[in-house]
Design a protein around this nucleic acid. Sequence first.
RNA 1: GGAGAGGUGGGUGAGUGGCUGAAACCGCAUGUUUGCUAAACAUGUGUACGGGAGACUGUACCGGGGGUUCGAAUCCCCCUCUCUCCGCCA
Length: 423
Amino acid sequence: MLLVPFIKENKDKVVKLLKIKNFHNTDVLNQIIDTDEARKNTQKKLDETLTKSKSIAKEIGGLFKSGKIDEANIKKKETGVLKDLSKTLSEELQSLKDEVTGLLLKIPNIPHHSVAAGNSESDNEIIKTVGEIPKLYSGAKPHWDLTDKYDIIDFELGNKITGAGFPVYKGKGARLQRALINFFLDEATAQGFREVQPPLLVNSDSGYGTGQLPDKDGQMYHVGIDDLYLIPTSEVPITNIYRDTIVNAKDFPIKNTAYSQCFRREAGSYGKDVRGLNRLHQFDKVEIVVIEHPEKSYERLEEMSEYVQSLLKKLELPYRLLRLCGGDTSFTAALTYDMEVYSAAQERWLEVSSVSNFENFQANRLKLRFKDENGKTQLAHTLNGSALALPRIVAAILENNQTPEGIKIPKALIPYTGFDIIN
RNA sequence: GGAGAGGUGGGUGAGUGGCUGAAACCGCAUGUUUGCUAAACAUGUGUACGGGAGACUGUACCGGGGGUUCGAAUCCCCCUCUCUCCGCCA
C-alpha cells in the first residue's frame, strides 16, 4: 500500500510510474488526496468536540465532589449536543478512513526506475543467459514421459486421489524432492538465513499483510469453515512473523528461509503451461525472505539474485536472468528478477524463481517498522525470492540430464540423493 | 465438541467509574563512576492521526465491535483469541 503523504508530494511522478505498471486509473489518486483532506478536517472537528466534552466532564466531576449537585446537573445538559456531534463526526471519520484505505488497496506498488514499460512476458528484459543448452540424444523425451518410464512421479494417481495438479512422487522421485529441499535449505543456512517452519494455513490478516488479499483472492484455497487460507507461498507466513512489529535496526538484514508446500488454485491456466510439472496446485518451494533498511534494500536484492543464480549453477542448469517489465511485475513488487531454466526436451524456458523488492509496500500493510538513526520510526523494506521452486527444477533436471542409460543426478545433489542415476 | 478462566505498554504484572496513557519490577537507551567486561547509581523509554519551525501540544488506543454514563481499562452485550479440565486424536 502506498503512503498518502507520498502520493500527495509526488503525484505527477506516481502517475507516470503507475502507467509503467499498466495502471491508468489515475483519478483514484486525486480521490485519495481529496478524501484524505476531508478526513483531516473531520478529525480536527472531532478532536475539538471531544476536548470540550472532556473538560465539561472534568468540571462535573469536580462539582459532584464538592457537593454542588445542582450546578453539576445543569452542566450535564450541555453535554448532550456535544455527544451527538462527536458521534456523527466519528462515524464520518471512520467512513472516510475506510474509503481512503479501500482506494489505496486498489493501487499497485510503483516500479523501480529501472523497470521498463511493457505489457507481458515478451517485454521482459533478458539481462543474461548462463550455461550451455544441452544437446539431447534422438530418443529424448519430455519429463512427463520420463516420469512414467522410470516410475518416479505419478500424475494419474494424483488425479485419482485428489485431481489434476497433485502428483504423487514415488521412489527415487520422492527422494529427489527431499534431496532438493535439503540441499536448498543447507545452502540458505550457509548464506546466513535462519530456517523456520511456518504454518501452512493463514488467516486473512496475514493475506492482506503480504498483499495476496484482496488482489488475488481467487488464487488461494480457502478453508471456509475456519476462514483460513492455504498458503500460496511461505512468503506469506514468514513475512507476517513481522506484522505489527517495530524491529531493531541493528538486526538488519533480517533473513529467514523456509521450506513449505505451496497451494495455488491456478484458476484460468491451461494447455502446455500445465502439462506435467510445469504448473501444479500443490508444489514444494524453499523461500528466502529479507527485511532490510530502505537504503540497503536494492543492494540486498542483487545479493539475493546472485545467491539464487549460484544454486542454478551448482545444479548445472542453463538459465537466464530477466528483469520483468512493468506489466509483468506483480501488484506488490517494485522490481522483480526472474530466473528461468531451460528445459531441453520441451525446448522452453521455465520460471523457477522470482526475486523481488517490495520496498515499503508490504511493510505499510504489515505495519512493519524500525527505529532509524534519529529515533524516528519508519517503514522497513521487504524482499523475497524463491530459492527455489522444485517442480520445474525437477523437470529441467530430468529432461536435460537424460541419457540412454538413465537420468544423471547433478554432482552437488548426489550426497543428498544417495544415488547418481535414475534408471 | 462440552465446561470454566483470562486477554493491560518490549516482557512480567497492578489497577472495579473521574486525579490512570496507565503503578511496580524486568528489559532497553543514554549518562556518571570504575583498567575492560560486569556491577552500582541517575535520567529516559508506547503507537497512530492532527497542530506547531521547534520546545511542545490536541485526540484516540488497556483483544475487536457495540452499549450504559456528564465521565469507562474499570459496568453491560456480542464476537474473537489464548489457557485449564473433560471428550476426541497424530
